[in-house]
Amino acid sequence: MPENLTVIAQLSAKPGQETALREALTALVPPTLLEPGCIAYDLHRVVDDHGSFHFYEVWRSPEEHAANLKTPHLQSFLARSGDLLDGDIQVTLLRRLASGS
């Protein structure tokens, strides 16, 4: 059985768009958690940078993660992300090697 796919996505708000980006990202959480294959979809903010956000995601498979990128709620966010984001979304795909639990 293949290992789950872990995704770390880093997003930075344009100056003055911190609250709007936070609200837009927070709105992605409930529908994404309902997507097939979504095990975890946690939004974090950097402690000392209110405009820097990270998603910690765990997906059952790369295919299910890829399917999520095509959902209406994510496509809607991406369509307006140019107004909110300072730079590109940085995405890192990971495979867990060891667990502490």
Rank of each mutant, 00 (worst) to 15 (best):
P2C: 04
P2K: 13
E3T: 12
E3P: 07
N4L: 02
L5D: 10
T6P: 07
T6F: 13
V7R: 12
A9Q: 05
Q10C: 14
S12L: 12
A13G: 07
A13L: 04
P15D: 03
G16N: 11
G16H: 08
T19K: 15
A20W: 01
L21M: 04
L21S: 04
L21N: 04
L21R: 02
E23S: 13
A24M: 07
A24K: 05
A27M: 05
A27S: 07
L28P: 04
V29G: 07
V29Q: 02
P30A: 07
P31E: 05
P31A: 04
L33T: 05
L34T: 12
C38R: 08
C38V: 07
C38Y: 07
I39N: 12
I39V: 15
Y41Q: 01
Y41N: 01
D42C: 02
D42M: 02
H44D: 05
H44W: 09
H44C: 14
H44K: 10
V46Q: 15
V47W: 08
D48C: 09
D48R: 13
D49V: 08
H50I: 08
H50R: 08
G51M: 01
G51Q: 00
S52N: 04
S52L: 11
S52V: 08
F53Y: 13
F55N: 03
F55W: 03
F55Q: 03
F55I: 01
Y56M: 00
Y56Q: 00
E57I: 00
E57C: 03
E57M: 02
V58I: 13
W59P: 03
R60L: 11
R60C: 03
S61T: 14
S61K: 06
P62Y: 01
E63T: 09
E63F: 03
E64T: 10
E64C: 02
A66Q: 10
A67Y: 05
N68R: 01
N68Q: 09
N68C: 08
N68A: 12
N68L: 05
L69R: 13
K70W: 00
H73I: 01
L74Y: 13
Q75E: 10
Q75A: 09
Q75F: 02
S76I: 00
F77Q: 10
L78E: 08
A79R: 14
A79K: 15
A79Y: 06
R80E: 11
R80G: 15
S81G: 10
G82K: 10
G82D: 07
L84G: 10
L84R: 12
D86G: 11
G87V: 05
G87K: 00
D88C: 09
D88H: 14
I89T: 14
Q90G: 10
Q90A: 14
V91Q: 10
V91S: 10
T92Q: 15
L93M: 15
L94R: 08
R95I: 13
R95P: 00
R95S: 14
L97W: 06
L97T: 05
G100E: 15
S101R: 11
